[in-house]
């Protein structure tokens, strides 16, 4: 019985095979990237680290798109946390980090000491870190955006986590925070609660807007979520150079970050056309937020999102290409 069944199946299979179909490798000019004429300098493989936030992904997607289309590079994206990505410079696993937030400690170690990484200038994006509230709160309590009034509203922010103090929701673990010191030094009646992840922060703000639940927390711009909900920043005492030198005594706002690009020394010396591309790459917060929105809100793949933006912004891309 089983034998008969087997032979029937085998027969059907052979029949199917007889019908044939396109053979692997026969597909007409299927290989991507071979058509890129003109700037045909050997690009080879470009290893892009992908740090885990969507804005980064937007930068990387557009760079990858241009590198593949214009130089025929093979772009390999590696999903890595920042710390791990920097380690990869030394080993040749990673060629470029295309949106870096500060990280002076890493720069000191890998750029100055190990000399495995090279700074490659700003991306044009400005990073803003600070405390934010949902728009409805700013509308209802207009003076809340001044830090000096925060104690007045502390009661609003009491939660099961913060006890009899106001809750300051903190803690995307990837970002350096001075918030515990800030609360102490500004004598605020708040307790820092660690949400633990970007997802947790975003969910909390979303709920805050939807349920009119008071939340104050740590956030940053550019970030795709700001395209969904325009959070309002609290004004802390203004940042002055050096006011955050001693982490224990910080009593001022976070500095503005010039987001920049870092590449490995090896890649910088390789003369790859992709190096020039990354060096010239620069765009605005709005550009990035748009691509990020394509990815996160409209659920496009990063490649599609980049292609769409590239089609609409040919002039900007032209400026990044080598001038020869």
């Amino acid at each position: 019985m089983a034998i008969r069944r087997i032979s029937v199946v085998a027969g059907a299979v052979l029949l199917l095979a007889g019908c044939g179909g396109a053979k692997v490798g026969e597909a007409p000019s299927a290989a991507p990237g071979t058509g890129a004429a003109g700037s045909a300098a050997a690009c080879g493989t470009l290893n892009l680290a992908i740090n885990p936030w969507v804005g980064y992904e937007a930068n990387a997607a557009v760079i990858a798109h241009v590198a593949e289309k214009n130089f025929g590079c093979t772009v390999v994206k590696k999903d890595l946390k920042e710390e791990v990505a920097w380690q990869g410079f030394g080993t040749g696993e990673v060629d470029a980090v295309v949106e870096n937030w500060g990280h002076d400690d890493l720069k000191k170690k890998y750029v100055e000491e190990q000399k495995t990484a090279v700074e490659l200038g700003p991306t044009g994006n400005q990073g803003v870190i600070g405390w934010y509230v949902a728009p409805w709160m700013a509308a209802k309590y207009p003076d809340i955006t001044n830090w000096e009034n925060l104690n007045k509203y502390a009661d609003l922010f009491k939660t099961s986590e913060s006890g009899d103090k106001g809750q300051l929701l903190d803690g995307d673990p990837s970002f350096v925070t001075n918030d515990e010191a800030l609360v102490k030094n500004l004598k605020l009646d708040y307790k820092v609660v660690f949400a633990g992840s970007e997802a947790a922060l975003i969910t909390a703000f979303r709920e805050s807007e939807k349920e009119q639940k008071p939340i104050i927390g740590y956030f940053y711009d550019p970030q795709w979520f700001l395209a969904e909900l325009k959070l309002v920043k609290i004004n802390l005492p203004a940042y002055t150079t050096g006011c955050d030198a001693d982490p224990a005594k910080v009593a001022c706002d976070y500095p503005l970050y010039e987001l920049d690009k870092i590449v490995s020394k090896k890649f910088a010396d390789s003369g790859s056309p992709a190096f020039t591309l990354i060096k010239n790459f620069s765009w605005t917060n709005d550009d990035q937020n748009l691509v990020a929105k394509y990815i996160s809100e409209d659920k496009m793949t990063p490649a599609d999102a980049a292609a769409k933006w590239a089609a609409d912004n040919e002039a900007k891309i032209k400026a990044w290409l080598p001038t020869s």
Binding site: K81, E82, E83, H103, D105, L106, K109, E161, G171, P173, S174, F175, V176, V193, F194, A195, G196, S197, A199, A200
Partner: peptide
């Protein structure tokens, strides 16, 4: 995993150590 969603304490210490150079 709890550290990722608000448990703080040891869980958060581990998560932050994974992400931040000076906390590892």
């Amino acid at each position: 995993v709890g550290g990722l969603v608000g448990a703080g304490a040891l869980g958060y210490d581990v998560v932050a150590g994974f992400s931040q150079h000076q906390l590892r």
